[in-house]
Simulated assay, not measured.
Amino acid sequence: MSTKQDYEITVLFTGYSTQIEQGMLANCTCTLLKGPKLIIVDTMTAWDGDRLTEALGKHDVNRNDIDFVICTHGHSDHIGCNYLFRNAHHIVGNCISHKNTYYTFNFADNPYKIDDNVSVIATPGHTLQDVTVLVKNVNGLTAIVGDLFENEKDLEDERIWKDAGSDSEELQLKNREKILAIADWIIPGHGAKFKVNKIK
Results as ranks from 00 to 15, higher is better:
residue 101 T to P: 00
residue 172 Q to H: 11
residue 134 L to K: 05
residue 186 I to C: 02
residue 83 Y to E: 14
residue 90 H to D: 07
residue 163 D to V: 01
residue 154 D to A: 10
residue 3 T to P: 11
residue 79 I to C: 14
residue 170 E to S: 08
residue 23 G to V: 00
residue 57 G to L: 14
residue 88 A to V: 11
residue 38 L to W: 01
residue 49 G to I: 06
residue 158 E to S: 15
residue 167 D to W: 11
residue 116 D to V: 08
residue 30 C to G: 05
residue 25 L to P: 01
residue 119 S to N: 13
residue 119 S to A: 07
residue 182 I to G: 10
residue 86 R to I: 12
residue 181 A to C: 05
residue 13 F to D: 07
residue 42 D to M: 08
residue 141 L to D: 04
residue 154 D to C: 15
residue 45 T to N: 09
residue 159 R to G: 02
residue 75 H to G: 07
residue 39 I to P: 03
residue 139 N to W: 06
residue 95 C to I: 13
residue 147 D to T: 01
residue 73 H to K: 06
residue 98 H to Y: 03
residue 30 C to M: 13
residue 134 L to S: 06
residue 56 L to M: 13
residue 160 I to C: 01
residue 79 I to G: 10
residue 95 C to Q: 14
residue 200 K to Y: 13
residue 129 Q to T: 15
residue 109 D to K: 09
residue 73 H to N: 15
residue 28 C to P: 04
residue 195 K to I: 06
residue 34 K to R: 10
residue 156 E to Q: 14
residue 109 D to C: 09
residue 187 I to G: 00
residue 170 E to Q: 14
residue 139 N to E: 15
residue 141 L to P: 09
residue 173 L to D: 08
residue 145 V to Y: 00
residue 168 S to Q: 02
residue 101 T to E: 03
residue 9 I to N: 07
residue 51 R to Q: 09
residue 172 Q to Y: 12
residue 190 H to D: 02
residue 56 L to D: 04
residue 158 E to W: 04
residue 106 N to C: 13
residue 40 I to D: 01
residue 71 C to H: 04
residue 115 D to Y: 10
residue 146 G to D: 02
residue 148 L to Q: 12
residue 151 N to D: 12
residue 122 A to R: 09
residue 9 I to V: 15
residue 58 K to N: 13
residue 103 Y to T: 12
residue 109 D to L: 11
residue 54 E to I: 10
residue 183 A to N: 07
residue 73 H to V: 05
residue 124 P to A: 13
residue 74 G to D: 04
residue 42 D to R: 00
residue 98 H to F: 04
residue 156 E to I: 11
residue 181 A to V: 04
residue 36 P to N: 09
residue 28 C to Q: 02
residue 141 L to C: 04
